[in-house]
Design a protein around this nucleic acid. Sequence first.
DNA 1: CATCCATGATAGCGACGCTAACATTAATAT
DNA 2: ATATTAATGTTAGCGTCGCTATCATGGATG
Lengths: 255, 255
Amino acid sequence: MDAKLTIIEAAARLLAQSADGDISTRAVCEASGIQQPALYRIFGDKAALLEATVDHVWNKYLSMKRAAEASSDPLADLRRGWDGHTAFALANPNAYRLLFGSNAVARAESGTEAVRLLQGVLERLAAQGRLRVTPEVAAQHVMAANSGVALAMILRPEQSDDPRLSERMRESVIHSILVGGGAGEPSTTAALAAKAEGASGSNSEAVVAAAITLRAALARLDAPIFTGAEQTLLDEWLARFNTDDTVSTVEGAHS
Amino acid sequence: MDAKLTIIEAAARLLAQSADGDISTRAVCEASGIQQPALYRIFGDKAALLEATVDHVWNKYLSMKRAAEASSDPLADLRRGWDGHTAFALANPNAYRLLFGSNAVARAESGTEAVRLLQGVLERLAAQGRLRVTPEVAAQHVMAANSGVALAMILRPEQSDDPRLSERMRESVIHSILVGGGAGEPSTTAALAAKAEGASGSNSEAVVAAAITLRAALARLDAPIFTGAEQTLLDEWLARFNTDDTVSTVEGAHS
DNA sequence: CATCCATGATAGCGACGCTAACATTAATAT
DNA sequence: ATATTAATGTTAGCGTCGCTATCATGGATG
């Protein structure tokens, strides 16, 4: 199974040096000292080879980044992830274009893993009460904006000469996803609690505040969102978040 | 010179029906009743044919839109232009992918014209003192975000299932480009709706954010606060707060 | 030792982008 | 009206592509 890695590395090398962004399986075979039937026995077809190559390049870059990406501040992690994404695109334009600008490698693991990592960060932000959309929606928003900026810088550098384009888009996206606009003053009770926990080191207050907010909203709700029984039970469940036991348990996951 | 248009229309037809987004010059020749040497005498090479085809499709769509795009409100025109861009991408995914996701048709006139039209609108906004960046910078920002959303919806529909993704990104970009955040029709977007309810006294954004916060906290909760079934049902109920119907209904209760 | 299966090597198929070569027509000049 | 030129139609084919059929080889397994 060493042949597989040999082929992938040769393909990655050729892809990085390719002028038009494409490579031929014949060239890959010649560069890796392997014959075509072997390549097709291993990968099946060219799309699978490209997929494996893109995944390999992506994972190589990711393992470089992963060491420095464990922080207590999910917003800082989000910024780091964005900048890393952009840097990867500029460092590997051909692989990136295959991954985010073509349909040939749409099923590559790299794309879903990028979204998974992003969602992890966003869920931590959500747990602090700082997201105003669901992590799923936020992830789609961030990914679309980030890939749009990266592709524009790769494919239309002369039309994307603003040196702060990526940074601008990053902050624009962050602003529209976070409550209170991110860097600005928090406006919701949950965000206030999130800011307060910055001093105490715990994020459980945001959860308690969110439960309180929801219970209050629930009481004033006359729209047919819940039946009476549902509403009663939901209120009971929301009340469970207010116990100190719950708080300490939730915050146990944090530290 | 009628042969040129005949070829282009055949190519556009084939491109629209193509499964993998690519077409062969042989198929174009057969579909247009013209031989390959004639095609290559007219266009030079395949890239030029694709370029002309994309330009043709783009201009056809643009002439459809141009009639309805003379307004006194540049912000409304910006929104119209954004939605038209997205609609074109979804209606012509293969042509769009060639234009914004590949380097084969990077020099197509369509791309530069799209940016030119956009800059015209942005310059009108700038003349009204509503832009907080230069029209050039704003145009790059808008184009990158719009193409990113469109490509994501084309290439990764299962990862871009938020039906309001384009709208969300549009308002996010507008907010970050205009001075004061930019006000428009307050009924459509969640952000603007949140602004409107700020005056009315209710706080639907806080409710949505609280529900999101609780769902995130719920996901990383391993303490025995809820049983599995309880947690599943609670998550479902919390998810109901995220629908825009719910939001408007909640704020409707107090207006 | 016989069997089987994974790998090596050769050759080739059909389709691709593209072009040389020539035949034919249309347009122009004399 | 004829000769010259330019444009177009037609055939055939080159080199490369993704991919595969075919067979030889060799080492592991019973």
